[in-house]
Design a protein around this nucleic acid. Structure first.
Lengths: 204, 204
DNA sequence: GATGTATACTGACTACGGTCGGTGAACGAG
DNA sequence: CTCGTTCACCGACCGTAGTCAGTATACATC
């Protein structure tokens, strides 16, 4: 159902993109905290009111970027799970999956993650795709755990959905700890150790 | 080594207390977000600059309140551990301890906890007593786990210190999840379920 | 007692995120 | 074509947290 946009809508979309692109440019150059909305609208050559037509807040523009990015990430997580060797132990696959997530997180960088976590706690994000239980990340865990149960590797008295929700919560929780204890807290080691304990608890 | 304060120091301490008391009063009445520094200094009858002599930020005044409160809490946690029945199973004691923490958290209230968690992630809290591994909360877990190990109830290949650090991280992490999913996320149930899994992993 | 210094305190000031009534051009209805 | 409506966009304005050069005075030193 592709529909040609009216010139007004076209113009609006172009304006939004101009704001977005210039904002990201400035964020990368000076850091989010050091970029004012005024400087964004100046560079994008729109008015302040124009900015708030397209974005609800300064945070919103970053949220949009992060959501786009995370959706692409989740896609790569999905392919990771699909390509996991059939004969490997479920807990080993899970562990290397957790490792991959940690690596990705550290690659994205402390600063951006911290911003995302701050925004999450500041705003009441009802329809946030990062928190939706439909998010691919939850599904991947669910699939792997389900497989482990049906293979008899994991306890069968547990709900795969509940366990995968817990796993994601744990990852988020440890990442939060990483943010508030940076750089002392070693995210990878601590997550590994915790999951090893958890695996001992869910193994059959 | 009690030393009589000079009149200047006395005066300063009095001013600080006047600011602090009036601020807390206003926070309780209108909510933290709805109280401006201007309104605090007006009520306390000091200048704005005077406020910033005693507190580094608006958040700092709340942090001070929270720290005081949590220190008292930790004291009550300590007495909980000391009064735990000698013959009870370690994991049962731990579980009811976690329950007590959850209850306390919910009694303090979502709003205040959320504020505390936001402040933690916004600022680089190096010498924060809430994060210090010397905090009583860590010690209580450590003691209980240590006892469990020496009684042969828990695996003896684990470091009690490491496990207790993980426990606190988990509680903080689930509380963070509670903050960003409020009110959908049931803190108590989810924490219970997770600790039950963990206990299966550390039991001998 | 005179003199110099440290510091509690002042308040006008800045920079910032966000708001809102107003405007004009694109658009749909007749 | 005309007329009324919608809405992207404008920019002056607001309330806020935080700053800083300046002031007055308690205090230490001689």
């Amino acid at each position: 159902m592709e529909m040609k946009k009216s010139s007004r809508k076209m113009q609006a979309a172009e304006t939004k993109k101009k704001i977005y692109d210039n904002a990201i440019l400035l964020f990368n150059k000076y850091g989010f905290e050091n970029v004012s909305v005024d400087s964004i609208v100046e560079k994008a050559e729109v008015s302040k009111g124009g900015f708030y037509v397209h974005f609800a807040s300064k945070d919103a523009i970053l949220t949009e970027m992060i959501n786009d990015y995370v959706n692409r990430l989740d896609f790569s997580y999905k392919s990771f799970a699909e390509n996991a060797p059939e004969d490997a132990k479920t807990t080993d696959i899970l562990l290397s999956f957790v490792d991959q997530i940690t690596d990705t997180m550290e690659k994205i960088g402390y600063n951006l993650i911290k911003l995302a976590y701050r925004i999450h706690i500041e705003r009441n994000n009802e329809n946030d795709s990062l928190l939706s239980y439909d998010r691919e990340l939850y599904r991947v865990f669910n699939t792997l755990i389900q497989r482990g149960i049906s293979r008899g590797e994991l306890r069968n008295d547990l709900s795969a959905e509940m366990v995968s929700n817990q796993f994601v919560t744990v990852i988020r929780g440890f990442t939060y700890e990483w943010c508030i204890r940076y750089p002392e807290f070693n995210l990878k080691d601590n997550l590994r150790r915790h999951f090893e304990l958890l695996f001992a608890g869910i193994r059959r």
